[in-house]
């Protein structure tokens, strides 16, 4: 078992989580929790794959996947922002809806494997020569992985150092104050739910067009959307921490698949090699670790009194007392 390969493919798998998590961070920073992430990712994965199959262009597929997920996110935006319904229930129903839609429209896509063109992978010259790190981060990775590297600092900079980013935070922390300064709370929340949808679609398309190409129904995402929602809390709504968490979880997912390979593990007999059934316990790990990450995230949030955007989950009603 080559640890470098596991870490390298962990970075690739983690890129999916990264896009989904950062997208959700944007939506939640504006005050809207969207539990439909898993469904939106499926819609993105399915429509990207379908569009790529139809047009032959994976880039067009990527775009279609993003827009499809963005559009479907607006159902949640309308229900929670305009109709002021409970964000938890609305997000869950969006999830049902989106999963249903992608299963219906994805019929017959599974058989298209190896026909659909996918996004390119390549090594970065020079950087891939760096010992260890070069092989983990810069060798034969998907272009989406490299875009992910550039995306993280940009996402952080946007939230923390730009004027629109400040508006985003204001709307999520103290919408009444933002409103009084002429920032449109409603419009911004719609917008950032849309952004969250776009990134969820990007995450889904990254799976189906690049990281593990193909359409496998609900197994395409296999719960990664829910893990991403957990990661948002672990990341304390910070894109850089989100990247950190995503790559760790990516590597963990990869480890689960690879650990049954070698007969010895760190010099000991490998129990997973001799009894493959123990693999079921390994498969629990990413989910168990998500719960653990939640515990860590929640404890830290209580200690530092930071974290959750103050208006998260609350509808904004103009003229009403409160936040």
């Amino acid at each position: 078992m080559d640890w470098l390969i596991i870490l390298a493919s962990g970075v690739a798998t983690g890129t999916v989580l990264l896009y989904a998590t950062v997208g959700e961070i944007y939506a939640e920073r504006s005050g809207v929790l969207n539990l439909g992430l898993e469904g939106m990712m499926l819609v993105g994965a399915m429509s990207a794959y379908k569009a790529s199959a139809a047009t032959g262009s994976p880039w067009l597929g990527l775009l279609v996947g993003m827009i499809a997920a963005g559009v479907i996110s607006q159902i949640h935006a309308f229900i929670t922002i305009t109709l002021r319904a409970d964000q938890v229930v609305s997000g869950l129903s969006l999830n049902f809806l989106a999963v249903g839609i992608s299963l219906i429209l994805g019929e017959g896509l599974t058989s298209l494997r190896d026909v659909v063109s996918t996004l390119p992978s390549f090594s970065i010259p020079l950087l891939s020569q760096i010992p260890w790190l070069g092989r983990i981060f810069f060798t034969n990775q998907s272009i989406m992985v490299y875009i992910g590297f550039m995306f993280v600092p940009l996402a952080w900079y946007y939230i923390n150092r730009t004027r629109p980013g400040m508006h985003l935070r204001a709307v999520g922390e103290y919408p009444a104050a933002a409103d009084s300064l002429g920032i449109s709370v409603f419009a911004l929340r719609y917008f950032y739910v849309f952004v969250g949808g776009l990134f969820a679609g990007l995450a889904g398309a990254t799976i189906s067009l690049s990281i593990s190409p193909g359409w496998f129904g609900a197994l395409t995402t296999a719960g990664q959307g829910w893990i991403a929602i957990g990661l948002v809390i672990f990341a304390q709504w910070d894109p850089v921490r989100a990247a950190f968490g995503s790559y760790i979880f990516g590597a963990l997912r990869r480890l689960v698949l690879d650990i049954q390979g070698p007969a010895t593990l760190l010099g000991f007999a490998n129990p997973f090699y001799f009894n493959p059934h123990y693999g079921f316990f390994m498969k629990m790990l990413p989910f168990a670790f998500t719960v653990l990450a939640l515990v860590i995230g929640s404890r830290e949030a209580t200690r530092k009194r930071i974290g959750t955007p103050a208006a998260l989950g609350l509808p904004y009603i103009r003229g009403q007392r409160g936040l």
Partner: peptide, 10 residues
């Protein structure tokens, strides 16, 4: 297709 019941639920 198989997703219809899920969709109707949604």
């Amino acid at each position: 297709p198989a997703g219809i019941p899920t969709l109707i639920q949604g």
